[in-house]
Design a protein around this nucleic acid. Structure first.
Lengths: 252, 252
DNA sequence: CGCTTCGTTGACGTCTATCAATTCATGTGG
DNA sequence: CCACATGAATTGATAGACGTCAACGAAGCG
């Protein structure tokens, strides 16, 4: 849970008391094997799923069985914080690698959000980051080549892993299979494999048994057209009731 | 602003007092012509943008100028409610058709959210719907054919227009050009045109000068693999502090 | 040591992009 | 009311990125 507090603190400023309240949250610990489903569509959930260890993903499944991964969650991420306000799942959550989760009851989270408006805003903000990542992926899937998509995914996971204290942007764990990467980037396994080969050929990175080593960060970011601002890491300027007032551009 | 209250009420139950508070919100009215940008990336905004009339979109732009529309907003939608917790835009907002907006100051929205936890949750929930739509689009773009994507977009706008009281699911306004539809579905204008022809050929709908008439809803939904649950319309069962307790499925 | 999962390769097919006109619709000014 | 400019829709021909199918090699595991 300390990891979760740290994650929230990346983007929201919390008082000592508020931090204590977050730390007091707890829940059932559960372990999953890779490929095991954690939440299925239609289910009514009563607890949010905090990733304590491993890699977890949210996905959508088509009629013919094809899958599209829509989000990855690493240790410290609350992977369905939004379920607090929308407990009827319209999504699936699965363990990408072996993973450990903590199920934090909605009742507790609601109680906390209700009592501490700043925490409620922090939750909301975290959810907004999720949405921002999704929006970026709509752009990637709609308008970029396969190599740019794959490179972008690596860039994103690199930055998130680094921010989460789980590695550096040039060396971090990413325990996904090629099939899962293909499901995330909207291409086939075969084509993903060839795309990875092309990325290797350009000496951008190595990806061996779940570990990524970026050899050329700038090159990778350039291929990906990666701009980290959508991850809202520098947003720490927020929070604190009335602190508006900088002049801002007005359009039209 | 009444429209906005109505939109929130689709998914959150608000008390009479809370409803009054929402209705008391207000802001500068602004008019835009089609194709005019409303918010640009990097901008620091201090007011959220409520769509009073017309069609508004959020998009991402690539290095080579290609655009990807990530969301459409119709009258009654607060198109960047998330900016309340993340005021530094990493996105662009543009007027798809001629549009009128009301800029509601963040300060007011924050004040309201801080004083009324239920309203804060309602805001958060609305933002979650946005994220849910984005997740669905990641799936559409990653794994569906062009015709399914286009059909899905029409289904979605149909349901949202109907829910917003702007028409019925078989007859509603949708003032976007083919180029904009192409930017939303991740294909080219040329291909979108041919896809529309195919949809017409299958007698699914007509789309003439901004008005959609669905001739075969079931057929359209089937081609699109459309399942409206992600729009969270039936989620009205929420809100009201402690009303948990139905038995729910537990995984694993 | 067989089984299963994951990664890799080759040949071939197709959906969608690209390029470049052309038609159609709308609106403006003379 | 016509001439013209402008944006939107449509069409044809061609190219390329990615999917499909099928097989094989490598690696972990009970």
């Amino acid at each position: 849970v300390g990891q979760f507090l740290r994650r929230l603190s990346l983007r929201s400023r919390l008082s000592a008391e508020e931090q204590q309240v977050i730390l007091s949250l707890d829940g059932r610990t559960e372990k999953y094997r890779a490929h095991q489903d954690i939440v299925s569509p239609g289910e009514l959930v009563d607890a949010a799923c905090l990733v304590a260890d491993g890699l977890v993903g949210r996905f959508d499944q088509m009629r013919d069985g094809q899958r599209q991964l829509t989000s990855f969650y690493i240790a410290g991420d609350m992977c369905d914080l939004h379920s607090v306000v929308a407990p009827r799942a319209s999504w699936s959550i699965t363990a990408i690698s072996n993973a450990t989760t903590i199920r934090v009851p909605h009742a507790d989270l609601q109680e906390v959000a209700r009592r501490y408006p700043t925490i409620a805003m922090a939750f909301w903000r975290d959810d907004t980051v999720d949405a921002s990542i999704l929006a970026k992926w709509v752009g990637n899937l709609g308008r970029k080549s396969s190599i740019a998509r794959v490179a972008h995914l690596f860039c994103e996971m690199a930055m998130r892993s680094e921010a989460g204290g789980l590695g550096t942007r040039t060396s971090f764990e990413f325990h996904a299979t090629q099939e899962q990467l293909a499901d995330a980037t909207g291409i086939t396994t075969v084509h993903l494999n060839r795309t990875l080969q092309e990325i290797r050929r350009q000496n951008l990175l190595t990806f061996i048994s779940g570990r990524v080593n970026v050899l050329d960060w700038d090159g990778l970011a350039s291929v990906a057209e990666f701009d980290p601002s959508y991850l809202l890491f520098d947003a720490a300027a927020h929070r604190q009731p009335k602190r508006l007032g900088e002049p801002q551009m007005v359009v039209e």
